[in-house]
Simulated scan of single mutants.
Amino acid sequence: MTFTASRPGILPCQAIDTLIAAGAVTSDTPFDADQVQPASLDLRLSDRGWRVRASFLPGERTVETRIQDVVMHTIDLDGGAVLEKGCVYIVKLQERLSLPPGVVARANPKSSTGRVDVFVRLMTDRGATFDDVAEGYDGPLYLEIAPQTFSVLVRPGTRLNQLRLKAGEPPRLETRSVGVDLAFKNEGGIVGYRGRRHAGLIDLDKVAGHDPADFWEPLRAQRGELMLDPGEFYILASREAVEIPVDQAAEMTPIDPSVGEFRVHYAGFFDPGFGTDEAHGAGSRGVLEVRTHDTPFMLEHGQIVARLVYEPLTERPDRLYGEGGSHYQSQGLKLSKHFRA
């Protein structure tokens, strides 16, 4: 097919709908009504997966050919499958791409995935990198899944990541630094949460179905400081409110490791309208998913921990983030949608 955009940029929902109608994005099952987001497409697990002993990139081979070198056993997701923390899995996705000339794609975990410390990366046949899909790619999609803190329950249709499609080479409009809030602004002086190491199972399709006390330890900073322990997972909030203009989207990227031995934010996409007046949600904070490296690190209030990179859309989307309701619009410090408020 031939696809023409009005200008270089990220494709909005109506352009994604056009690609679906033209067969550039197909699926094993009918698309869900809410699967296309303002500037991204949610991807869904199929019923077919593998437990593998190591992560990998396929190189010059297909994903399923390369899997045979590291497979431990196959997994049937029908009826639900438990993915154990500390293990690595590959699951085929229901969606398939046949990208037209001039269009590329990039994937990222959904916010709810990152907030329960499930590390996911998109894979393509003969792919040289994770999460990036080259122009002209025609083939299936796979997801590497590596739960870090909690074991999780998934099934066919579970959505763990999302795909952003781009036309041409959109310019970076702005790069904004993001600091962390450790200043006792939340009720009870809670500035964050630390994942409990020996918690139970999280059903990733169950909204508000888990008691947060069973999975999270509330944290109170001392003098605007918080000690991060190696190997622990933290949920914190940005000091600044995040607002994404209606004709732009943004990606949160980890800060240069030279300023701190930690990684911030697994789930990096912010859709147009996030935190804006027009979407009735001014002042949304960015939630920070933080994991330290090999040494303890003292985090201070206001310390820069990540950057927001803004890019234009090819055109204004027909709908904005938060229209019709969202678990994360107008958020402050907030756990994932799986937990009761």
Rank of each mutant, 00 (worst) to 15 (best):
P140C: 10
P317F: 10
T314W: 02
E187P: 01
A146V: 13
F270G: 00
Y193S: 15
Q94I: 05
Q148F: 03
T18C: 15
P296V: 02
D125R: 11
I67V: 14
G136M: 01
I16P: 13
T295I: 10
Y193V: 07
P317E: 15
A39P: 06
P218F: 06
W50I: 07
R263P: 03
L226F: 09
P156I: 10
S177F: 03
Q35R: 07
A107S: 15
P8W: 04
V63W: 00
R51C: 05
S98I: 02
L77G: 06
D76T: 00
K166A: 13
R263S: 08
H265R: 11
Q148E: 13
L219F: 00
G325A: 00
E243K: 13
R48Q: 14
D132R: 15
H301V: 09
V104H: 14
P156G: 15
E217Q: 14
V118S: 00
P8R: 12
K206H: 10
I145A: 03
L299N: 13
L236R: 12
S336M: 03
S238Y: 03
I304W: 02
M252S: 12
P156N: 09
P257G: 13
L99R: 08
G322D: 10
L160K: 10
V180I: 12
L228C: 05
A39W: 14
F150A: 15
Q162D: 12
E217F: 00
V88N: 12
P140V: 10
R316S: 04
A241L: 05
K110D: 03
G281H: 05
P101K: 09
V191Q: 00
S177G: 03
V103G: 02
V52R: 04
K185L: 15
Y310C: 03
R53E: 09
I190T: 07
G275S: 03
T314H: 06
L335K: 00
S151A: 04
E60D: 15
A39C: 11
A221S: 15
V264D: 05
F31E: 07
A250I: 05
A279K: 12
A199K: 06
E144C: 08
P38R: 07
R53A: 04
A21G: 08
E217M: 14
L173W: 05
R307M: 06
R155L: 06
Y234F: 07
S46E: 06
G322I: 02
E169C: 10
E135T: 00
P212R: 01
P147N: 02
A146R: 15
P30Q: 05
R172N: 07
A282M: 09
R51H: 12
V82K: 15
E289M: 05
V290T: 09
G275Q: 02
R164W: 04
V191N: 13
N108Y: 14
K185M: 08
R340Y: 00
S27G: 08
G102F: 10
S151E: 04
L77V: 11
Q329V: 03
H198R: 14
M227C: 10
P58E: 08
F3W: 13
L299M: 03
N108C: 09
S326E: 13
G224I: 15
Y266P: 11
D277N: 11
L97A: 04
D271Y: 01
P30R: 11
L333E: 08
G302Q: 09
A15K: 14
P218K: 05
S98D: 10
E144W: 00
R106W: 06
D131T: 04
